[in-house]
């Protein structure tokens, strides 16, 4: 699956098969949820990050279903690289995880993060977000800590973790920079921990 093909697949699905919601509605709703969490946990941003990740995880577990149905990628991705492309953007030599990343973000959010910074063992890569629909009209709490401690878009990490877990990949994902914190880029680091083996339920053969 080449980069161009993934781009085309993503575009096609986004245009034809996705029910869209108003972007501002999503942005404002997400912002409201983050604000509420910051209030609930009284500025314990470590906990807020954790909750966002967990919400994303629960979304990801379910979202993968929709993704597989819409993207028609019945073929299994043969390796972690392929997966990255599926999530962000495909290119032939490092396919599967990239493809999921590309197509996934494209069809659900109409954005195309860049897949980059692979480690030589092909077990870690970064997604760099040039645009981030969640991060519009954001006001971070003015307590001097939110800017250093809150990962505003942390829900994405959970979504990826949950979705990939359902296709037998256990990953760890976290942001390492965010323009909302004053960094130059918004970058998420994703590491493959292991492939989860198919396991038959006990006494069910």
């Amino acid at each position: 699956m080449s980069a161009n093909k993934a781009a085309r697949v993503g575009e096609e699905i986004w245009k034809g098969r996705i029910d869209k919601v108003n972007a501002e509605l999503v942005t404002l709703t997400y912002g409201t949820i983050v604000a509420q969490l910051c209030k609930d946990f009284e500025g314990d941003y470590v906990e807020v990050n954790k909750q966002l990740d967990r919400m994303g995880y629960n979304i990801g577990l379910r979202l993968i279903e929709d993704y597989l149905a819409k993207s028609n990628t019945m073929r299994r991705c043969s390796n972690f690289r392929e997966t990255a492309d599926m999530i962000a953007k495909a290119s032939l030599h490092d396919k599967q995880s990239r493809f999921h990343a590309y197509v996934g973000f494209k069809i659900f959010l109409n954005i195309t993060p860049t897949v980059t910074n692979w480690t030589s063992d092909s077990k870690q890569f970064s997604l760099v977000f040039e645009e981030n629909p969640l991060a519009d009209f954001v006001e971070l709490p003015d307590d001097g800590r939110a800017q250093d401690e809150l990962w505003y878009s942390n829900i994405f990490c959970g979504v990826l973790r949950g979705a990939l877990e359902m296709v037998q990949m256990q990953v760890e994902a976290h942001f390492i920079s965010d323009v909302l914190r004053g960094n130059d880029t918004t970058e998420m680091r994703i590491s493959l921990i292991r492939y989860i083996d198919d396991e038959l339920p006990p006494e069910d053969d």
Binding site: R54, M55, N58, R161, G162, E165, Q170, E172, A173
Partner: peptide, 10 residues
């Protein structure tokens, strides 16, 4: 971020 122990409910 160890997901295996979590439940699927929010």
């Amino acid at each position: 971020n160890n997901g295996s122990g979590e439940t699927t409910t929010g």
